[in-house]
């Protein structure tokens, strides 16, 4: 099932609606890579609240998405990892190193606002 991607100001919000197969995740990666360019987005939120398991493949793909979007000039934040899911990830030794995480959508937006704040240019 395809993940809908919404545009919210300068950000994109990918809200995962159901459990995802490997190919759905790869599709999400490709769609986000493209949309960040077409919408000139500077931040991306991936909401994983509904995911009941984040296994090694999902972790690797989420990491790849965040690193890829960073190379395209956008910050990524993963929001909504459930407590049981987080516990299983820790047990599996899976980390989202170098990837922003936040509790929920609201915190995710605050994280991006902070991360994408532009330093004032001298003389302006």
């Amino acid at each position: 099932m395809q993940v809908p991607i919404l545009k919210q100001g300068g950000y994109l919000i990918a809200s995962i609606q159901s459990v995802l197969s490997d190919s759905d995740l790869v599709q999400l990666r490709d769609n986000l890579g493209e949309r960040v360019g077409s919408y000139r987005s500077r931040g991306v939120i991936i909401d994983v609240t509904v995911l009941d398991v984040i296994d090694s493949f999902a972790t690797r793909t989420l990491r790849a998405i965040a690193h890829m979007l960073k190379l395209r000039g956008a910050e990524t934040v993963i929001v909504g990892i459930q407590p049981d899911v987080a516990f299983a990830m820790v047990q599996l030794g899976l980390t989202l190193e170098g990837v922003g995480t936040a509790l929920d959508l609201e915190e995710g937006l605050a994280y991006l606002d902070e991360k994408t704040k532009r330093a004032p240019v001298n003389g302006n």
Binding site: D52, V53, D55, F57, D84, F87, A88, Q91
Partner: peptide
């Protein structure tokens, strides 16, 4: 996940079992 719930495992264990199945299936 469904079987673990049916067998009476708690929520955290159900998730651990589902994650383990995911890895061996992969």
């Amino acid at each position: 996940r469904a079987l673990a719930l049916e067998l009476g495992f708690n929520g955290a264990d159900v998730t651990l079992i589902a994650a383990a199945i995911s890895e061996v299936a992969r």
